[in-house]
Write a protein that binds this DNA or RNA. Structure first.
Length: 285
DNA sequence: AACCAGGCGCATA
DNA sequence: TATGCGCATGGT
């Protein structure tokens, strides 16, 4: 049994109600640049594709409602996906020792890191390079529609490495990924052939895991770290993109504070979201 | 209409 | 090891 004492589950009709001690906010968690496949029209009901299923989740305060979900599904899929074993209340409390991180955590107190599918995460962040978030979402959506399997409701699974391995950049032209198409195919070929072993990456020390992923063309340190953080829950990874670079230069010229070093990846996510979304994250220029 | 985007590969020194 | 450029595409 995975469930910890800070969570309680109640089955109601076909839904599963999950009461958390930690604060959680789906908009903050699902729209902070770590995942690209969740949609909402009203910020109340979120629809996404996880584990090859169309999933709906809503929430009222800290109570999440997993629609049409069993307790067993929660334990095998969602508990890990939402990183529910981790105490974010405690982590945020520690991060608040630094004044800027205190603001960043207060800005999005319901944000959690996700543990997503490694393959999907890897490809998603290959696509992310030198790209905007809205366009990343568009490319991934077209990729799934082109080569995923239909799941009903107009939704598609994320294409497998096998489905992509035999394709050419011309085949991928409709998804308009630009120069990244060849990188996607290289990743598919190496993962499908076993030259890059994603299940090994999970257990490898981070430095070796990073090297393994960087065998793929189009995977540098930053993309590898994003995959390791969001697809393998390697919380020690701290992807440095243009936003985090700006944060480091303008807000932490002396380097990150001590309190950020326990989980650099989590600190990074609060800072990334804060920098990108909060109008007064940076002092006036 | 330039400039930029959750970077990286490659050439050059 | 360190720098600089080109890359596909599209939003601002």
């Amino acid at each position: 049994m995975l469930i910890n004492p800070r969570i309680s589950l109640t089955a109601a009709d076909k839904d599963l109600i999950v009461q958390l001690e930690d604060q959680i906010d789906l908009a903050q968690t699902l729209d902070c640049g770590q995942t690209f496949r969740w949609e909402t029209t009203d910020c109340k009901i979120f629809t996404g594709i996880v584990a090859a299923k169309v999933c709906r989740i809503s929430h009222i305060d800290n109570r999440l409602i997993f629609h049409n979900t069993t307790r067993q599904e929660f334990e095998t899929v969602w508990y890990e996906y939402f990183d529910f074993s981790r105490n974010y209340t405690q982590i945020k409390k520690r991060l608040a020792a630094d004044p800027i991180l205190k603001k960043a955590t207060a800005f999005a107190p319901g944000l959690r890191l996700l543990h997503q599918d490694p393959w999907e995460t890897l490809i998603s962040f290959i696509i992310s390079q030198n790209n905007h978030v809205p366009r990343i979402k568009g490319i991934i959506s077209r990729l799934c529609a082109l080569l995923g399997t239909p799941l009903g409701e107009g939704a598609f699974s994320f294409p497998s490495a096998q489905a992509l391995a035999a394709k050419t950049p011309e085949d991928l032209a409709p998804i308009r990924a630009g120069f990244r198409a060849k990188y996607i195919i290289d990743a598919a070929q190496k993962v499908y052939s076993g030259e890059v072993d994603l299940s090994a990456v999970q257990t490898l020390p981070v430095e070796d895991a990073r090297k393994e992923l960087m065998k793929i063309k189009g995977v540098g340190v930053k993309v590898a770290d994003c995959a390791l953080l969001y697809g393998f829950s390697k919380m020690e990874c701290m992807p440095v993109d243009v936003w985090i670079r700006r944060v480091l230069e303008q807000l932490y010229p002396q380097g990150l504070p001590e309190c950020a070093l326990e989980y650099p990846g989590i600190a990074q996510q609060f800072l990334f979201h804060y920098a990108r979304t909060c109008p007064d994250a940076f002092p006036a220029e």
